[in-house]
């Protein structure tokens, strides 16, 4: 009996040694908080480790509290940050961090070649590779001629629709973008109509995807990366890029954003990681893996799900979206949280 206990104790000690041991251990490390799903972001970070020898300590977000959990943590840690880099799957919360004074400016050389709108004039963040907000439809439950083509068609068919809680993630960004494009009253009216019309509000875009793919709802608002997962699995689904006609509203394109954290403990390594994330190679890898569908630079590889996409994006710039989002945030909280 005693031997068994000894073996157990040694196993535990062994596990500890195994967990902490690294061949050729290096003192160089960098800490990143990322809201990009672990399945997509981890291979990129591991590749950075392999190329540079810099150890990456990553903190990934959970689907349910997407982005906002990490943002809260960054704000709470503002006085003594642990993180060096924030890699966000969208831009709305990055702007919130900029306003809170959490970010440090850095003009990455890797951001050259990105569209002007994708780079903050004060260099607090840079954006790359986008996902688009799409209407995801179940083709078994809805014939193509019945597919809505405009966001304005949705309130009338609210009971057929599902969308993620608009206080979080890219749905929050979508709400802010609609407020910027249509004005706060019309945007709030849009969400109120969806809610009161019986639309199903769920915990995340992945849930919307699964519900549509399984036919539990005929259609839902989600992102192209989520849609791509179901398409790859051969589910009876299709995506509709809304408001694509000439002069139309366009669809929201949500780029990734990369920013340095002010006072982060490893500034030099942080700059190297930011450069790596903003590089064309990383964008190509993310298109290949399915996280990015809309390249921010010309000549980058086509995605597997949608091929070469030409999408008419919504027009408001990030500053307008930030301001509009701040203007509706209380009302949205009242509508969907309180």
């Amino acid at each position: 009996m005693r031997y068994v206990l000894w073996i157990l104790a040694m196993l535990l000690v062994g596990a500890g040694v195994f967990a902490t041991f690294r061949q050729g251990d290096t003192p160089r490390e960098v800490t990143i908080y990322t809201s990009v799903d672990q399945v997509y972001s981890e291979p990129i970070l591991r590749a950075f480790e392999a190329e540079t020898g810099i150890r990456v300590n990553a903190l990934y977000d959970a689907e349910a509290a997407k982005t906002v959990g990490l943002v809260n943590r960054l704000i709470a840690e503002k006085g003594a940050p642990l993180a060096d880099v924030f890699w966000n799957g969208e831009f709305w919360q990055t702007l919130a961090l900029q306003e809170e004074g959490v970010l440090a400016p850095y003009a990455s050389p890797a951001a050259e070649g990105l569209p002007a709108l994708f780079v903050d004039p004060d260099a607090f963040w840079a954006a790359f590779g986008g996902r688009a907000r799409v209407l995801f439809v179940n083709t078994d439950r809805m014939a193509e001629e019945d597919w809505p083509r405009s966001i304005f068609d949705l309130p009338g068919r609210a009971d057929e629709i599902s969308f993620a809680n608009p206080l979080f993630g890219s749905t929050a960004t979508h709400a802010a973008a609609l407020a910027a494009a249509l004005g706060p009253d019309e945007a709030l009216g849009f969400f109120e109509a969806l809610k009161s019309g019986g639309a199903r509000v769920v915990d995340g875009n992945a849930v919307v995807r699964d519900m549509v793919a399984a036919g539990r709802v005929p259609m839902g608002l989600t992102d192209t990366d989520d849609a791509c997962v179901s398409i790859k699995k051969g589910a009876p689904v299709a995506v509709v890029f809304l408001d694509q006609e000439e002069g139309g509203l366009g669809t929201l394109v949500v780029p990734n954003t990369v920013a340095l954290i002010a006072g982060g403990p490893h500034p030099e390594e942080a700059r190297l990681l930011a450069d790596y994330l903003l590089s064309p190679d990383t964008e190509a890898k993310l298109i290949e893996s399915g996280w990015v569908q809309i390249p921010s630079r010309p000549g980058i590889a086509e995605g597997k799900c949608f091929g070469k996409l030409t999408v008419r994006g919504m027009q408001p710039g990030v500053a307008a979206i930030r301001d509009a989002g701040a203007g509706i945030s209380d009302a949205m909280r009242e509508m969907f949280q309180d």
């Binding site: 908080y33 990456v56 300590n57 990553a58 990934y60 689907e63 995340g204 997962v229």
Partner: peptide, 23 residues
């Protein structure tokens, strides 16, 4: 665990839960 794990200190349960959202 999810609320207390430090950066770079991920545990298996967090990985499984994150992956499960992809079905």
């Amino acid at each position: 665990t999810m609320m207390t794990a430090a950066p770079g200190q991920g545990l298996l349960s967090m990985r499984v839960f994150n992956y499960l959202h992809y079905g």
